[in-house]
């Protein structure tokens, strides 16, 4: 089972409280100023408090309302899709676009429900060459194509 089930109102409330609270905490380090001369901390502090209040209201609503909706999280696609992006970012500078792109395709392919190895190999080869030709050669995006030191 890689699914987590939770009430949407409750969780969004918690998320707003968490994020809003974070902004409130950090903005206390900045100068608050006055209403006339607002400092850098004034606006975020007010907004952060709003977010916390809205979050609390949602949590209360979730506790008292009976008709809550439940969210189903699938972890597999998220893990591999986001993982593929991280792999790209990590691999690009040392290994160059061709290798980074191929690795990205490989990792991303695990996010889907079915995969065939020859398809992945073909896709990785085709897309990395296409990417190098179109983005680096034609559009001039300054990124390394081959591994460093090659």
């Amino acid at each position: 089972m890689n699914r987590i089930i939770v009430n949407t109102d409750f969780l969004s409330g918690a998320l707003f409280v968490l994020l809003g609270g974070g902004f409130v905490l950090i903005s206390r380090n900045y100068d608050l100023g006055t209403a006339v001369q607002m400092g850098p901390g004034y606006f975020p502090l007010v907004l952060g408090c709003c977010a916390v209040l809205i979050g609390l209201a949602l949590i209360v609503k979730a506790i008292f309302a009976s008709d809550g909706e439940h969210a189903h999280f699938h972890l597999r696609p998220g893990f591999f899709v986001l993982g593929a992006m991280v792999v790209f970012a990590l691999a690009l500078r040392p290994l160059g676009l061709i290798v980074a792109a191929a690795l990205t395709i490989l990792v991303a392919s695990f996010a889907g429900s079915e995969r065939r190895w020859w398809e992945i190999a073909l896709l990785a080869a085709g897309l990395s060459i296409f990417g190098a030709l179109v983005f680096v050669e034609a559009l001039g995006v300054p990124m390394p194509i081959w591994p460093r030191g090659l």
Binding site: A84, M85, V86, I105, A108, S109, A111, L123, F135
Partner: peptide, 27 residues
Amino acid sequence: YRFLFPAILLFCCIGLYSVQNDVTDIY
């Protein structure tokens, strides 16, 4: 879709990098 999404993902990554020529935006 199993052919499309890796391609879209790769182009997104290249696009993100190209804005500031930096990988921070990808993270």
